[in-house]
Design a protein around this nucleic acid. Sequence first.
RNA 1: GGCAGCGUAGCUCAGUUGGUGAGAGCGCCGGAUUCAUAACCCGGAGGUCGGCAGUUCAAAUCUGCCCGCUGCUACCA
Length: 511
Amino acid sequence: MTKPRFYVTTAIAYPNGRPHMGHAYEAIATDVIARFKRLDGFDVRFLTGTDEHGLKIDQAARAAGKPPQSYVDEMVAPFRDLDEALGISFDRFIRTTDADHKALVQALWQRMAANGDLYLGRYEGWYSVRDEAYYDEGELTTGEDGVKLSPQGTPVEWTVEESWFFKLSAYQDRLLALYDSQPDFIQPASRFNEMRAFVAGGLSDLSVSRTSFTWGIPVPGDASPDGKIHVMYVWLDALANYLTGAGGLDGEWWPADLHVVGKDVVRFHAVYWPAFLMSAGLTLPKTVFGHGFLLNRGEKMSKSVGNVVDPAAMVERFGVDRLRWFLCREVAFGDDGSYSDEAIVERTNADLANGIGNLAQRSLSMVAKNLGGVMPRRGEAGESELRLKNAFHTGTDAYLAAMNALALHKALDALMGMVTAANGYFAENAPWALAKTDVARMAEVLAATLDATRRIVILAQPFMPGSTAALLDQLGVAGDAREISGLNTPVEAGVQLPLPAGVFPRITLDG
RNA sequence: GGCAGCGUAGCUCAGUUGGUGAGAGCGCCGGAUUCAUAACCCGGAGGUCGGCAGUUCAAAUCUGCCCGCUGCUACCA
């Protein structure tokens, strides 16, 4: 029996600066989903990477006095390092400067051209030679001498540039039909409504080539009539990375099951991307999910405010699993969220140290001290055990439903409900008292608690791969019994457990 | 300006088609306990459900207005 497949992607990062918390958040959330799918028996393909073409990179490279290729070669390193530090389990880190990607984008272009959707036209707008960029009328200010100025204060002039256009306008009806027949194509629902309204409001054709700079993938074919080199619009280039990562235009992993992207780029993924794919005669991804932004103490991160946080420093300070847990537990996936050192300390102490960690430690240490570390046998289920079982049944169902609906925070809420139930069971049966009166019953209570803990830790794996692996080792769970399919396979009685050691120590703000 | 949405305990939020006394988690206070990472377990305090006015036997839940906040309103990403 072959496993069902699941192809998931993050957006690709634009490496004209250092990675920030937003990058880390998107990578973590997507990694959690990918790990969950693997745990749930899927054959998963997980793609992430960097978007390396375009004017801004070109300008940044020039400012740094380097050729763009060597510039991006350097700039991409921190992104790879961050993924490494965060434990991101990607299958490929794609760079849009990769050779197979460049070839694919040109092939995609040709398919769209063959379908008659690309034509040569003129792009007009307010252009700043100094910035090498076009600006909207609304962004402009008027200088003292009546000259129009860009937001950077540089003079702009009305410029006409030859450009290839994509017949986006021809896809309005098909896009609306897509949304109406597949309401979960764009998630969460609030984004769906915005995108639908946007498309319903009418679409203009899209300029998909530039002649104002050359750092991009060249448009295939002969030189244009005006003799200038056309490079592709960065979004066409960037979006196509998902095809490259799938193995090409007819790649075995296409279509993607899920594109996880920031809410700021939902439009590109939910409008332009399906239109490009329709034009090329390719199938569409199943879902585009737009996650929210992370706010630092409720404030938007910005360089001018000086509250930009380096995610690598956060990993250093709190540990990768605490950071992963906090972001998935505290932030409703799809909404904006806020973080602070205090919140991370509070949340992880409550959930991990007091909750999961303490549950494991209190039961494991009793087994070590009273039973020589030998896994005890479970007894006949009494009323107390049945209540525990029920709580875990509904909790597991809630967890799985939430994960499949991409409601990561709700899944963890369900998981914490199970932790509470297990701690309640333990306190109710007071095995420490039974140690003096009824050792056999004590052993049964410990066995039931350990099994409850095992289930919790198995389900926590996508969120905290490192810590849960250590805990499952302590719980004596075999390597091949750690998937969701092994949830109902308890550790056999008689197994010798290693000496327990705390996995989630409490932390303090100044520590 | 237009469209969409939001404003419920200190904090983050749940609250189907209006109907028994308004909830959860965290934090806080008290009790109990000692297996455990001063953790766990039990209990408690805390809210005129943004404001005003309506509809109704009955509104956090419907309508109108007002106040505050957010997103979208395309080709820099």
